[in-house]
Design a protein around this nucleic acid. Structure first.
Lengths: 237, 237
DNA sequence: CGAAGGCATTGACCTTGGTCAACCGGGCTT
DNA sequence: AAGCCCGGTTGACCAAGGTCAATGCCTTCG
């Protein structure tokens, strides 16, 4: 099967693949699968044997845990250009997925065999360092999440989230286009939809933001930054 | 300097070193440092450049974050035979420690240069897989922690902790000897010391446990297991 | 031996965010 | 066009756990 010539370039958007040599990357491309997922469809379930890992091309996929009562906590929302479940196979107990994965939007992915990748790691230290980088990044993200869940309140978490969502580069109005329904963000931040709604109302009444559906216009970035103890906007050097 | 002949064996208790070839392990042993830490003394601070990682020989070290208000959340309590901060150096931004580390008890450690280890990884896939295993394990632990912080209440977290602390093998009374002051456990579980005390009182009144200082006698293991939705004691096969 | 300091416990009260229910509004289906 | 379904909002109430303060207890140290 012939892949588009810049499939490799597409994959390199992910940290995992960014610095991999062309031949190594090609060997992965040869063995990979195309996957399409409709909204709400499961990719894998927690506890299943982890035979593949994934690269998200388009759409949005949530990684989450469920409580026995059926409550959901989203651990991470994967975006296009990111890989996930690439770290699972290294636990002694023949890897099982530690979370559920489900499409939020209609999504397209590439799937890779864990064992093909494993062989690659033995001979390519580029690949290995890419993987270590991805894992290290995820570790750091999880620690940050634990900190904000335990040492900060719901308003802090939401504001921090909004600030991260403001496009970096843009010189224009610092607005946020929410990529998911508010309920999804609520689950990611471990707050109830009602509470999220109330916090937005509070920020709106304080004149910090304006809300129109999924579009949030930030009226006072500095006030938001103060809420999360950030110093007065650092300029890019 | 001549190391005791079984230093290598001591190190192999850690997953990171368990399957490393003897010569590789020896090369690390040659470059490592002995460190002693008195109780309450810091090993490193969040944000410092991460030049070393550590193996804990004796004692207890806490890894934690601080809020701007000075509240502390313990992310992990390291025990003898475990390594930590070995994953830090792979983040693009020339590694900085993502947490604080401080001795709880008087502790002895070995310290390793990150860059020596880095060189080793390039040529030893045993070392690499050891590292991947350690990181994968830690990732899993953090996800579990996020789940229990968000989907479970304080009683659940404490009971789950107690059950984990019951010595695996023992056929005798299933008791728990707390290795740290209760306040430390409270911080690890993200509850206040007062609340922890009240939960223990509740369990005591229910006849599930008895408490004598740092020694907790479990009177009804099954009742505890039920509280965390575990099935009726699985027998070792 | 007595005082002091650290950890733990207990009580009274308060706050944050959760729960439950009603309602709104836009987009789709029939 | 009517109805409906879903996501979101709002209000009233509730409960888990945090806060603050007083007290107890054990270890350490003078």
């Amino acid at each position: 099967m012939n892949r588009s010539p810049d499939t490799a370039r597409e994959l390199r958007r992910a940290y995992l693949f960014a610095d991999m040599s062309e031949p190594h990357l090609q060997s992965l491309v040869n063995g990979m699968l195309d996957i399409h997922l409709d909204p709400g469809k499961a990719l894998f379930r927690q506890g299943q044997a982890a035979e593949r890992f994934y690269f998200l091309r388009e759409g949005l996929v949530k990684l989450f845990r469920l409580s026995p009562e059926g409550d959901e906590k989203i651990i991470e929302i994967m975006r296009p250009g990111e890989t996930f479940a690439e770290a699972v196979m290294f636990m002694g107990t023949q890897g099982r997925y530690p979370v559920n994965a489900e499409a939020i939007n209609s999504s397209r992915l590439y799937a890779f065999e864990q064992k093909v990748f494993l062989d690659l790691l033995r001979e390519s230290s580029d690949a290995t360092f890419g993987l270590l980088g991805s894992m290290s990044r995820r570790l750091h993200m999880l620690v940050n999440q634990i900190e904000s869940l335990t040492l900060q309140n719901a308003t802090y978490r939401l504001v921090a989230y909004l600030l991260e969502e403001i496009p970096r580069d843009v010189k224009t109005a610092p607005d946020v286009q929410l990529t998911t329904p508010k309920g999804v963000i609520a689950s990611r931040l471990a707050i109830q939809p009602e509470t999220l709604s109330r916090i937005l109302a509070k920020l709106r009444q304080g004149g910090l933001i304006e809300v129109q559906g999924n579009h949030i216009m930030v009226r006072d970035v500095q006030a938001l930054r103060n809420l999360v103890h950030l110093p007065p906007q650092e300029q890019a050097p």
